[in-house]
C-alpha cells in the first residue's frame, strides 16, 4: 500500500533539512506546535547545514525487510552544528570510521523502495568526513 501522501508531507524536512529553532533554543526536526522544553510557541524557521557529530551509533545486522538489502549498515544519532538532534543511516563510509565524536555530513539518498511498483523514498543519510 503506497503511502505517497505520508511521504510527501515530510519532504521539506527530509529533502532540505528545514527545521524550527524555538525561542528557548530547542531545535525541532520535524516541526512541532510547541517546544517540548519550555512550552514556548515562538520559533523561527531554519535550514540545517547538514554538518554534525556522531553522539552514538550502532551497526544493524538484523534490519526490517525494508532495509534488508543494505545490511549490515550503521545508524547514528547525530547532533548538527546548530544543535539539532537526528537519527540517520550512515552510507559510503567504513565501519571503522563510524565512532562517537566522528564528524559527518548529510547527503541526499534513496532510503527505500515500496516494493517493485510503489514509490521511491528519498531523504538524508550521513557520510563520515575524514
Amino acid at each position: 500500500m503506497a503511502n505517497s501522501q505520508r511521504y510527501t508531507r515530510e519532504i521539506p524536512h527530509r529533502f532540505r533539512l528545514e527545521a524550527q529553532r524555538f525561542s528557548d533554543g530547542y531545535i525541532s526536526l520535524p516541526n512541532r506546535y510547541i517546544s517540548p522544553e519550555t512550552g514556548t510557541k515562538e520559533f523561527e524557521n531554519i535550514t540545517l547545514s547538514g554538518k554534525g557529530t556522531i553522539l552514538s551509533y550502532t551497526i544493524v545486522h538484523t534490519p526490517s525487510d525494508q532495509f534488508k538489502l543494505a545490511k549490515p549498515y550503521a545508524v547514528a544519532i547525530i547532533e548538527t552544528e546548530e544543535g539539532a538532534r537526528l537519527t540517520s543511516m550512515i552510507t559510503d563510509s567504513e565501519f571503522e570510521d563510524v565512532k562517537i565524536g566522528a564528524k559527518v555530513e548529510l547527503v541526499f539518498r534513496k532510503i527505500m523502495e515500496e516494493g517493485h511498483s510503489g514509490i521511491l523514498n528519498y531523504g538524508y543519510k550521513a557520510i563520515v568526513v575524514k
Binding site: 543494505a70 552510507t91 547527503v107 541526499f108 539518498r109 534513496k110 532510503i111 521511491l120 528519498y122
Partner: peptide, 16 residues
C-alpha cells in the same frame, strides 16, 4: 552506483 543511489540522487549531488 551505491545501493542507495540512482539517477535522481546523482543529479541532486551534481546540481548542488
Amino acid at each position: 552506483p551505491g545501493r542507495d543511489e540512482d539517477t535522481i540522487t546523482i543529479a541532486v549531488e551534481a546540481a548542488k
